[in-house]
Design a protein around this nucleic acid. Structure first.
Lengths: 172, 172
DNA sequence: CCCGCATCTGCGAAATCCGCAAGCATCGGC
DNA sequence: GCCGATGCTTGCGGATTTCGCAGATGCGGG
């Protein structure tokens, strides 16, 4: 069902480059161009993509399937949760003692955490959470996240209004 | 091309509820169910969705089109920018003096800003930025963002590793 | 009651998706 | 040089999907 990390882990780290980015070989210009097309419209037909990037329809189909299988890319509907029934959303900065990645994995396992990223700066981790209401939010932050072993402290930023959300870095 | 806010502005704010969420009437259970289907797979056929939510293929198609037109939902490919050539990514917390929303709009207009949200807490704004390299990152943070009138201070969190990125809040 | 508006359904035509096979070029190992 | 692996192309046909449109259906206002 693909709910885990963005890039699936590989069992055979061949060289240092691949072992550091989850076993995904670097993408060539054509795959990049395909991704750009699908960032503009996730439902664009393969033939149209092929015309745009200079590949046959079948080749595009094969590449897209591989990108999806590898977990490099996902094609999904995205919305503003606040307009779709979820009333509380927040970014939580986390400070960790011990193994940061282990804590990150533990947080990523929680269904309320949509987004988990390891950072440099005054937080070790930043986590975006989506909740039904205030009670739910309170429980997730104060009971679940702070209960994870290694979490030293947290700071919360409750969302008031989402102003922009795009995925079109390719098209500029 | 839809690169702006998530929800497009309406010109006729009828009641207070709609005027506060960008003119989008609340979604009914069927549209919710459709969105859930497309969160699992953005390319799922309309007929399959219709079977799942109890609607005809054409009705699903009309509702999806409306959701897209209204800006409630977008169907796109999402990736980890760090695996696709962009080498520096960061979350920036911003403190503002004066009109927060005006600053948010100014930041949202920058192509490097993928994500702009107004927050409660020790930051007024949180902004995610995607850059080509360190020079680019430095320029965006220290030259462009801090040059926006009303920006009092910023704090940056450079991404080290993206651990989770999902859009399946509906399916739990 | 009637009309306008919004939504859903049914249905054909066109386009797309998908699996498959054969041929070909490239690349790296041996 | 030979060979296997990989990836692209072309072509194909059938199943599926998309798309536009015409015709119900439902609902509230006048």
């Amino acid at each position: 069902m693909h709910s885990g990390p963005v890039a699936s882990r590989s069992a055979d780290p061949k060289d240092s480059r691949e072992s550091r980015n989850g076993g995904v070989p670097q993408l060539d210009a054509v795959s990049l161009a395909i991704i750009e097309q699908l960032q503009e419209d996730g439902r664009r037909p393969y033939a149209a993509i092929g015309k745009a990037v200079g590949l046959s329809e079948a080749a595009v189909r094969q590449r897209v399937q591989k990108l999806l299988d590898q977990g490099v890319m996902q094609i999904v509907a995205v919305t503003d949760p606040l307009t779709v029934g979820f009333r509380r959303q927040a970014m939580v900065g986390v400070n960790v003692e011990g193994d940061v990645e282990a804590v990150a994995d533990a947080l990523a396992a929680m269904s309320e955490c949509e987004y988990v990223v390891m950072t440099a700066g005054s937080f070790d981790l930043m986590v975006e959470i989506v909740c039904e209401d205030d009670d739910h939010l309170l429980e997730v932050i104060n009971k679940r996240i702070r209960a994870v072993p290694g979490v030293r402290s947290t700071e919360s930023f409750v969302y008031l209004k989402l102003k922009k959300q795009t995925y079109m870095w390719g098209t500029r």
